[in-house]
Design a protein around this nucleic acid. Structure first.
Lengths: 294, 294
DNA sequence: GCAATTCTCTGACTAAGGTCAGGAAAATGG
DNA sequence: CCATTTTCCTGACCTTAGTCAGAGAATTGC
């Protein structure tokens, strides 16, 4: 635990909390409690089901109900029973609600501008760049990874995303049935493992291992959601999978990959993988890599 | 108002508020309201007068009194009448209070570390660097400047700081009585102007103008507090003083300076000042500069 | 010496942001 | 079809973080 780094983070937290807090509170209040403004914002232009809204904002159902009642009385929203399921209620902005939301938007822009306005052009550039760095790295630090059951909807979703990305990127397209399979039951410990990366509860990446006792383990299904790229998650997934493989007694990890996946190839090379001769007849593969764990 | 920059600032605010808020609240609560924890922290190891404490935390006197009563009942602080002034009360941490404060400190460190811990060494470095940039630039954007009365204690304090800095930096030391004077009454409009920069209410820099109708105005007393250097305040003071001078009808600004003040000389050169022959016999000056305003 | 001011405390009040238990209505599982 | 679950609402209650008016004691200004 690096003490000067920690002190810098604490100084940052103090300054930023002071600056953001002072401005957003009150300024975005518009005479109504912040909770109502946040809710109004979160409903969005298209409307939402109340249960979704509650989940997104983390509200108690009683509290949410009262907040919505208050917004309804102000004439900003309408609430009606959802067409599909009679228990679920659907909330939408009225014209007045949309106008109010636009005003909140305008004010949030103004708050943001007040950060930049006192600075000269060079300082503004530096601030925006540094903010984007901080934001991306904070997002990265909010991601956590765990070995999960490959049969859950989230796990299946990740693997589907992976396949659909391969299909887009390979010159030939990608048909899973023509590739060497790695069925979900092969990814359940002790035969294998599926590692899922999550941000704010939602899945944003995965990677898998297939163990072959006495032989090298295979690395499969490495995927990171497009919006989460550039955060170093690929490397973290890889490190974590290698750690896991080693704990399971694996000495060597190997993998095959397609030539269009250049970032992945880069990652493997820079992580100590060396290219070896084809060790299987995967039709979509152009490169085969291997790494001895230590 | 640059829209993409504004969007980046908003994205930053959301992410950072989410991350900092979620962690600091509760984690630093220790079963007592945040207000009490903040107060406990702010009292510090040496103790404080309640009126100072109130000013620093911006608390209502009634509210502060209740918070302190509660901390007193928990056995964390003692409150006694100040020795000097019988109205003022002095608050100090007990041993238990100091232990509690140390625990808060430890937890704040832990929160900060939780930002860094998931990242690898290179990412940590980038995060700390970017945070320090953001923090400095946000501080810069919190500074505001105004023409103020040069006779107030804050104004006098700035000018004293300026003199004491000259005294430290000049090879010969600095004695104001041997220098060409610029008495406070000469810095009152319309004869002159004193610009003061403030951060969180406290003065952190100054700069002055002396007008000579029909002749160049003189720039004097440019000073920025050491802890606020590197924020571009010198340049902002200069720009603001030039703007003010121009509004007052001045065409040319000039100044003299000592060779040891290299950052200032840099600033003048890069702001369009060109060196001219000595236009006065200021004994402490080595360089004379002039700029035509437009 | 006395009026005005400063500092602290108490009591009464408020708003915001919740939590919790229970009930009604609709949907679902077997 | 019936028990269980899901979704939402209502009423009762709570803590936190204040604000405001007023009073008492000490100090300061003149």
């Amino acid at each position: 635990m690096d003490a000067t780094a920690v002190q810098q983070v604490r100084a940052f937290n103090r300054t930023v909390a002071e600056r953001i807090g002072a401005l957003t509170d009150g300024f975005l209040g518009r005479g109504r409690p912040m909770g109502e403004s946040r809710t109004l914002w979160e409903i969005g232009l298209g409307g939402t089901e109340i249960r979704d809204l509650r989940a997104r904002l983390g509200l108690d159902s009683g509290y949410a109900s009262r907040v919505l009642r208050s917004l309804e009385q102000e004439g900003l929203i309408t609430v009606e029973t959802s067409s599909g399921d009679g228990r679920v209620r659907y909330v939408q902005l009225t014209d007045a609600g949309r106008a109010e939301r636009a005003e909140l938007d305008r004010r949030a822009d103004e708050v943001a501008w007040s950060f930049l306005e006192p600075l000269d052009a060079a300082q503004r550039d530096r601030l925006v760049t540094a903010m984007s760095d901080v934001q991306r790295l904070l997002l990265a630090s909010m991601v956590d990874m765990a070995i999960e059951d490959p049969t859950t909807p989230d796990a299946r979703w990740c693997i589907e995303q992976y396949f659909s990305e391969l299909n887009t990127r390979f010159e030939t397209g990608f048909d899973p049935s023509k590739s060497i399979p790695a069925d979900t039951h092969e990814l359940v410990p002790p035969r294998g493992a599926l590692l899922i990366a999550r941000l704010r509860g939602g899945p944003i990446g995965c990677g898998a291992l297939k163990f072959h006792p006495g032989e090298p383990a295979e690395l499969k299904r490495m995927w990171v959601a497009p919006e989460a790229r550039g955060l170093g998650l690929g490397r973290r997934l890889l490190v974590e999978l290698e750690r896991h493989a080693k704990e399971a007694g694996t000495r060597v990890v190997r993998l095959e990959t397609n030539r269009t996946l250049s970032e992945a190839i880069q990652l493997y090379r820079s992580s100590g993988y060396r290219e070896v001769a084809a060790f299987n007849d995967e039709p979509y593969a152009h490169h085969w890599f291997e790494k001895r764990l230590r």
